[in-house]
Amino acid sequence: MGRGRAKAKQTKVARELKYFSPDTDLNALERELSASSSSREAEHASSEDDQGDDDYGDYEKWASGDR
């Protein structure tokens, strides 16, 4: 038996997670999102330089059987 205590603890934790809403630092979130989007844009721009204009070059090789 012994599962009663574990289940009660899980229920308590789940209830706390469901109903507890911590204060969100929206300024920090905005900084984090803007930093990740700018780095993602830079990464995307550098990968476009490597690929050229054709985004499906590898797919065309695969589809034609020239793997």
Rank of each mutant, 00 (worst) to 15 (best):
M1H: 14
M1R: 09
R3W: 15
G4S: 07
G4V: 12
R5H: 13
R5S: 13
R5N: 12
A6M: 11
A6E: 15
K7E: 15
K7R: 11
K7Y: 13
K7L: 15
K7I: 15
K7C: 14
A8W: 06
K9R: 15
Q10E: 14
Q10K: 07
T11A: 12
T11K: 06
V13Q: 04
V13T: 05
R15W: 15
L17E: 11
K18M: 10
Y19A: 05
Y19H: 07
F20Y: 13
S21K: 13
S21C: 11
S21T: 13
S21Y: 00
P22E: 06
P22K: 05
P22F: 00
P22Y: 00
D23H: 12
D23T: 12
D25T: 00
L26Y: 05
N27F: 09
A28M: 05
A28E: 10
A28L: 08
L29A: 04
L29Y: 10
L29I: 05
R31C: 03
R31E: 10
R31W: 06
R31A: 09
R31P: 01
E32C: 01
L33A: 02
L33D: 03
S34C: 08
A35E: 07
A35P: 01
S36L: 10
S37C: 06
S37R: 06
S38D: 10
S38Y: 02
S38L: 04
S38T: 11
R40Y: 14
R40W: 13
E41Q: 12
E41T: 09
A42H: 14
A42D: 10
E43Y: 08
H44N: 14
A45D: 09
A45R: 11
S46I: 03
S47P: 00
S47V: 08
E48H: 00
D50M: 05
Q51H: 12
Q51M: 10
Q51W: 00
G52C: 00
D53H: 07
D53C: 00
D55R: 03
Y56E: 13
Y56R: 07
G57T: 09
D58S: 10
E60Q: 09
K61W: 02
K61I: 00
W62F: 14
W62S: 04
A63K: 08
A63S: 08
S64T: 06
S64D: 14
G65N: 03
G65F: 02
D66T: 01
D66I: 01
R67Y: 15
